[in-house]
Design a protein around this nucleic acid. Structure first.
Lengths: 198, 198, 198, 198
DNA sequence: GATGAATGAGGATTCATTCAT
DNA sequence: AATGAATGAATCCTCATTCAT
């Protein structure tokens, strides 16, 4: 194998370690020296692997897409009912709240950093979103993509409110309520469909 | 005699004009010189009214609380059914999407700027949230605060996804779906309640 | 009397009140706003009486010359021996150490502010010095101006060391020693002179 | 491998070159840009070696302590009489007047910059003083520390007067006179002691 | 590849001074 | 005369980036 593999692998390792830093400090407030120090390398080394701070950050976001934090998928697929699958998914979310918040924050940082227009052209965030959407379709076995999207919006909004207001917003309560609302809606749909059929 | 200036009023005027700037550029990327230039004053004047960039920003957020963008309340209260009231509220949201996005962005900026701990202690954002919550309770005539909170999370999440993905996420579609989901849920609740009663 | 008298008198009053401020903070560290605030006037008023900060400071130094802090002279003249007169003069110095230090500090500030060349051309500090020298000649009834100058140097040096080292340098002890040294010297001179005569 | 630079040595070199600047301009009037320019480096480099302007200045003063400008000591010790030793010491002073003035000025600047309380706690200036005092005790072979202190006060005062009044105060004359006064005093002391003994 | 010293444009902030009232 | 709001040049300091070693 050529050296390129090592190079690329090391680059990803560095990116991984940067993740928390950007989430905690924000793009602008985080300096290259801070990053270098936290990673235990010199700024020179940083510039050996990334052409600029912006490049480093963009690669970080791009990398985020590929990180399959939805590796929990397998567990869910065995569950028989939609209700159970949603419950498991929400349970995962609750257990990984910190990480999910970070992703949300970094996405927003990216948005601010790039400027609205660029972001929407840049495929990165769109990809993250689509990726997650597809994962949910597969895992929840719910075909209605509008509903998937609704869930995603709600979840991201909930994470945001949790940042601002902390425990004043109950994760457990809100997730339980949403499950109730959604299942009620789906049941009703089914009933109506059956009624239509009948 | 000094130049006659209503100090406090002028300060608010300056704050108002800053709002867009912070939402567009973000706290860190926006310089005091840029602000001064955009407002048509000197940096010295800025420091005459605000003791620091941070102070300016904090006042901006504090001011945001008091701005009653939910002045649309009056119109809604006359509407007879919950479905109509929710539709009207969502209509307002759609028409004022830009402004609402800005508020969301600035809140997040504030979160990053202040650090998680401070933010949750700081009354400001909590107030915004409570204020909006109460307004929705009054206007929608919906007593279940958990549901109100759910709606708020969803709406903020939707705004966020709209930022990242633009028109790829349909505001109209999502809002309509949510209305459907919620009314279905409420109807079902009522039915069940009546069933309980009967 | 024309208004000029009032104007001039007020100007002097302002100068007087500035004295401590400059001694405590130093020229550069003291701002016009601070001065204005301390004097209970506006910066505008300050500029009505003084054309600039530099001008204010120069006038302050010039004024210092004319302030006869050596008004103690009268008391001394009645004392019969040189030793007693010197003792009284040093006693005055000890009681007014704070004020004397301030004068010294302000002189040095002036020196730094003006630049070495200007200072020596500027009559101000030279005048203070000559003024004091003459006062001492008259009061101590000691004709030898070289000795007067030596005393002045010593006293200023002592004040300086007291600033830096505080009570680690004893004012009382040093002044007493100098009195002893000087009177010994003068006595010896006299003896020798008499010996020459005889 | 990094550029090979002896950090500490270079830092001292920079400090050395700063000395004159601070003495000439004073702490407040001297800007970091001016310093950088004078030293032929960038402001960034300055901040690489010193954490702030204040730190730079404090290190300068601390460094001043260790600079043994009293390296002339060896020459003096061979001289047989106190009179000759004092003459040689004053001769050295006269030849190094410029440097000595600078030290005095910088000490005063330090005093103003730090505020009276801090200065007296700060060991730096006290050390300079003690260091010089001990050197004089050793070199002049004069045990009476009060007299050493008196000489130091006089010398510093003389330097100060020379700054303000330039050649109007004669260095040579004043130093000669002080020598005369002191030797007369010491001779008299001896005579009296012998008288006591006899 | 790796280092960290060096750079200098650019940031927040201060402050002497002006001037409309 | 008196005020204090307004100005903007100049200050200290930071930080992305370069480059000699």
């Amino acid at each position: 194998m050529p050296k390129i593999v090592d190079h690329d692998q090391y680059r990803r390792e560095l990116l991984n370690q940067c993740f928390d830093l950007f989430a905690e400090q924000g793009y602008a407030a985080l300096t290259m020296r801070q990053i270098a120090q936290a990673l235990g390398v010199s700024t020179g080394t940083l510039y050996h692997y990334f052409s600029s701070k912006e490049d480093l950050f963009e690669q970080l976001v791009a990398d985020m897409v590929e990180q399959d934090i939805y590796s929990f998928a397998a567990e869910l697929e065995k569950l028989p009912t939609f209700g159970e699958r949603l419950e498991a998914a929400f349970g995962f979310l609750e257990r990984n709240e910190a990480r999910c918040r970070q992703q949300t924050l970094i996405s927003i940082e990216f948005y601010q950093q790039q400027g609205a227009d660029k972001v929407q052209q840049n495929a990165a965030l769109k990809q993250v979103s689509d990726h997650v959407e597809q994962a949910l379709v597969d895992v929840l076995k719910l075909e209605d993509r509008r509903l998937i999207r609704l869930l995603m919006c709600f979840v991201d909004g909930l994470l945001m409110h949790r940042m601002f207001e902390g425990e004043a917003v109950s994760m457990t309560e809100q997730l339980a309520l949403m499950r109730h609302v959604i299942t009620t809606y789906l049941d009703h749909q089914q009933v109506r469909s059956q009624g239509d059929v009948g």
